[in-house]
Simulated assay, not measured.
Amino acid sequence: MKNWNRKLMAAAAAACALLMGSQARAQDYPSHSLTLVVPFAAAGISDNQSRLLARKLADILGQPVVVENRPGASGMIGAEAVAHAKPDGYTLLYGTHGTQAANLALFDNVRIDPPKDLRAVHSLFRQSTVLVANAATPYHSLGDLVQAAKQRPGAVNYASAGSGTQTHLAAAKLQSAAGISMTHVPYKGAGPALSDVLAGNVEIMFSYPESVSQHIQAGKLRALAVAGSNRLDAMPTVPTMAEAGYPDAALEGWSGVFVPAGTPDAVVAKLASAIGQITQAPDVVAAMAAISSFPMGLSDQQFQRFVEEEVPRWKAVVRQSGARLE
């Protein structure tokens, strides 16, 4: 019995020492530079948001935040790297609806379970796409497009930045909500897809507002509907999907910061507080609004629950689209 008591006391002492050591590390955090892994190529919305976040985060934490682009497999290479990193708060992930939810349905063999292997720290921004049509088409409203697609199933074609991207899945959501069938023309990137829509080789596509605004103003494209929950300041006259009669067609992408599971609570809390300040800062809000991105305002457990609830929703959208990636 005495031996058992000694073992019990030793185990309790070890646990106490471990807890105190963890608390001490959290109090000292961060003591050196952090790495923010962006699982996409340089340039583009994700990279630009990440670099803005890194600069602001470095100012608050007092340590450099290095952005590391690790593209591949629709973001899963970078996500896996962070999931397997040491859970000490020094390796962060810029995650999205793709890396944390949609990819679980897009790929046959995902080597991590993002909601379990990556802990949500704080949300960043939500972003919707806008449905545009070449100005030479007869589509002046979403109703025109839906009517044409119903009359000629499969005859209307739409471009996307690639199978499984938000620009593809938004179209899949519309087809399901409106009961129509259109032909998908996937491209390797949003740029080539938009170029062919502008050239009239493809009729429509869902694209990001900052990419199409100038072409809408120039009269080369028509904006038919916004795939988000709100109208956009840059396009105040363009209705949302709900306003156009198809509330179930809304689909917004989102982003946030994640760390490896097992990262100490105190470290997560410190990061969450800093990121919350950044996403609500007037200059950041203004910069993001200019590209039609808006802060979500979800921290730690709130954001974790949000991500877990998004997984089945995005899986359903992927199944509707029929998209599969190798």
Rank of each mutant, 00 (worst) to 15 (best):
A227D: 08
D28G: 08
G191Q: 15
V317H: 08
P71I: 11
L271H: 02
G75P: 07
V132L: 12
L52A: 09
A120R: 02
K2N: 11
A249M: 12
D108A: 14
H84E: 14
F303Y: 15
Y246M: 04
S211R: 11
G75S: 07
I291Y: 02
N5Q: 14
G98D: 08
K86S: 11
A242H: 12
G297P: 01
S22H: 06
P264I: 03
V284L: 06
A177R: 02
S123W: 00
A223G: 12
A218W: 10
Q147R: 15
R6C: 06
G78V: 05
A12Q: 09
K86D: 05
G62T: 01
L142N: 11
P236T: 12
L169F: 05
G164H: 07
L124T: 10
N5M: 15
A73K: 14
Q214G: 06
E309F: 01
T91V: 09
L36P: 11
H84A: 06
P186W: 06
A105E: 13
Q217L: 14
S141P: 04
G164E: 05
P64Q: 13
N103S: 06
H184F: 06
I180H: 01
G179Y: 12
V185D: 08
H215G: 02
G164D: 05
L106C: 07
A225L: 11
T96L: 10
V132K: 02
L142Y: 02
